[in-house]
Nucleic acid binder design. Structure first.
Lengths: 196, 196
DNA sequence: GCCGGGCGACGATACGTAGCGTATTGACAG
DNA sequence: CTGTCAATACGCTACGTATCGTCGCCCGGC
């Protein structure tokens, strides 16, 4: 129980940036195992206390650090060609998941979800739900254009798309090749009776 | 580097069983967080040394303990009705993943894969690959009976089935309801041009 | 002067290793 | 078949390391 919550206005932006950058750097260099609160503090030239003052745990630090990375927030494309857009998006996700620093950092964060409900909620808010709804919205857009049937189960479709990705990612299987990704998109669209 | 590897013939079966049981019990009662090597040793009335003599880490202990559980090795059904068999199998997996002690234990093991390649390999050998090939074989069986087209991409189909399950499991989303599971199976079979 | 920040010590856990008697085991002699 | 014995797995206990998360202290900028 902290007596008084800290005042965000007086927060040192410099320290904040140093901490986030240190977390990312450590993850790139030594993998998630090398990301400890003490290592972050040392590299950022910061006290552990400062980290714990503003973040509940290192998972949240990395999560915020990843959120700042621009390529992890790429918008869902809508060129009018549904299949191509899905392919672009999915291969982008695969690339993100398999490339440092995002790949190792994200898998490390996911590995902590099972004992940290608040981190779980934060990850959902920041990454999972937005991506999921963006995908659904892209399908809805196609639906409005008459390329997908009215009653198509769009949420199931998105699960069919992202599911295999996470299946391989979480189980540490080799990621989908671009060709495999294309076939995956193709099959799911076929399930929906897509008119390309 | 252990000087001499232990002699399996002289191994105490009693201790082995006590350790596996203690691991399972602890996981049921306190979740994966409560499963520590020291706690296992204490509950099993066993020395830590004995655990480390026979297992590389607690992940392997739990993995072996789960392997002994009969319901985690349920064979893939083949009643002749492909859709029903898939549904039975998948709902069984969901039930397993969401019920102690298997559910918490397995998610805990998965959370360690990212820093333990050997454990990853063991999990693949013991759980992932067998289930995957069993599912593919069930589809092949249907293929031989002419219910699935010759050129159907069976491995992709299995990924489409299991992917969403693991997607929700690893991301700690609520599991699929039986109805949702049925729809999932339905969609995937439709993708394959299944003749039921 | 208030309060965030840096320094670094601290207690609490958990991991993995090691030494030391004890007890169980498989092997062998009779 | 049975009694003996050496090998060694086992339990107990302590240790060293690592990381977490907290705390006291003083400094310095707003």
């Amino acid at each position: 129980m902290s007596a008084t919550p800290p005042n965000p206005q007086r927060r040192s932006e410099r320290s904040r940036q140093a901490i986030l950058a240190a977390a990312i750097d450590l993850c790139s260099e030594k993998g998630y195992a090398g990301v400890t609160v003490e290592a972050i503090a040392a590299r950022a030239g910061v006290s552990k206390k400062t980290i714990y003052r503003w973040w509940p745990s290192k998972g949240f630090v990395l999560l915020e650090a990843l959120g700042q990375s621009s390529d992890s927030n790429a918008p869902f494309p809508d060129t009018g060609h549904l299949g191509a857009d899905l392919y672009t998006q999915m291969t982008g996700v695969v690339h993100l998941l398999t490339t440092p620093p995002f790949g190792p950092a994200y898998i490390g964060i996911l590995s902590e979800l099972h004992h940290d409900p608040e981190l779980t909620e934060a990850v959902h808010e920041q990454f999972i739900t937005p991506r999921f709804t963006a995908a659904v919205n892209r399908l809805k857009s196609a639906q409005r254009q008459g390329r997908l049937p009215e009653g198509a189960d769009l949420e199931l479709a998105v699960e069919l798309l992202y599911g295999p990705l996470y299946y391989r990612y979480a189980l540490r299987k080799p990621p989908h090749t671009p060709e495999r990704m294309a076939e995956l998109v193709d099959h799911v669209l076929r399930t929906l009776d897509c008119r390309p």
